[in-house]
């Protein structure tokens, strides 16, 4: 009975997620919920690599930043149509993934993390100094978009609705991806890549595909955040901000879509409200990370689902 109920909930989970964010909006203000939604998209994109494929990237801000700068530059030079900006950002994200992927995905573990970090540093340098003529360097640049049809981007509610739709779309894509045979293969690579190879799969191709999907979705999140903020600065590609998304995926529980969402929301709540009360906020973040690593590996969502399962088992026994 209870299992049936859970299954029905799982089928319409996109509706539930949508409702949850709609409920969050009046509590947190619409502008802030927008941030939350965009960050959740980024965490989802990140988790395709980290949670499902087991590759910890320490430089994912690069792909986020590529999307952000691509859309801002499109608005400045090509067309003020926001959809064109998003399309260019997606292409740029995918292009970066295809360009860097063959180098990065061959490595594992620490090497993968550090090589991404190195590329991120290069990207940060390009945005901050080398291409400062176009990107505006440290001051960044503003991006103005036209209003297309009903998409009046000056209106926060419209931006909110649009971002929410994008998030639901990404959740849907991720659900399809991770439950497909492709997703299962990614998990196999995480568990034991040699065995996957032994079964006859060309794992390089699948890893590259996952990497490119992840970079594209990250760039998507970057583009959305430009539409939300209407300006871009080098902080969108800053290497030191990588810890945010790692923390979010750890806090939520990495190998799960709901976990990513829970993690994204929890991280944003912590980072938005905690600095008001605790001055030594980096220290808190460090202690929380240590606790997560040593005590709660499965994260918040893992903890919740374990507890629910335990009670469900108890109920079944009675």
């Amino acid at each position: 009975m209870r299992n049936n109920f859970l299954e029905i909930v799982r089928k319409v989970d996109i509706l539930f997620i949508g409702c949850a964010f709609l409920l969050l909006a009046p509590v947190l203000t619409v502008q802030r919920t927008n941030d939350f939604i965009i960050f959740c998209i980024f965490v989802l994109a990140y988790n395709l690599l980290y949670g499902f494929m087991g590759r910890l990237s320490f430089g994912h801000m690069l792909y986020f930043g590529v999307g952000a700068y691509a859309s801002a530059l499109t608005a400045e030079h090509l067309s003020a149509n926001p959809f064109a900006a998003i399309a260019v950002a997606l292409v740029a994200g995918a292009g970066t993934g295809i360009l860097l992927g063959p180098i990065t995905v061959r490595t594992t573990g620490a090497c993968f993390a550090l090589i991404n970090l190195a590329f991120n540093q290069v990207g940060y340098f390009l945005a901050l100094i080398a291409l400062a003529k176009w990107t505006g360097g440290e001051d960044g640049m503003a991006a103005f978009f036209d209003n297309i049809w009903i998409f009046d981007l000056g209106n926060r509610y419209v931006v909110f609705g649009f971002s929410l739709l994008c998030l639901l779309l990404v959740v849907y894509i991720m659900k399809r991806l991770t439950s497909s045979s492709f997703g299962i293969l990614l998990r196999t690579i995480k568990e034991n890549e040699t065995r996957a190879k032994f079964l006859g799969y060309n794992t390089f191709r699948y890893k590259l595909a996952a990497f490119v999907i992840s970079t594209t979705l990250s760039a998507f999140a970057g583009a959305l955040s430009i539409i939300n903020y209407t300006y871009v600065t080098p902080s969108f590609i800053d290497t030191t901000r990588n810890v945010e998304v790692i923390f979010a995926s750890l806090i939520g529980g990495s190998a799960s879509i709901y976990g990513s969402l829970v993690g994204g929301i929890s991280y944003m709540i912590i980072s938005n409200y905690l600095p008001k009360y605790i001055q030594r906020w980096e220290m808190f973040l460090g202690v929380a990370l240590l606790l997560l690593v040593f005590r709660f590996r499965s994260g918040l969502w893992g903890y919740i689902s374990e507890t629910v399962e335990k009670y469900a088992l108890k109920g079944a026994r009675e």
């Binding site: 573990g109 460090g286 990370l289």
Partner: peptide
């Protein structure tokens, strides 16, 4: 991965 995250956490605490 956990080693990277844990030592990074130590770095954050120390810098703060």
């Amino acid at each position: 991965d956990y080693a990277i995250i844990a030592t990074y956490a130590v770095l954050l605490i120390g810098v703060d």
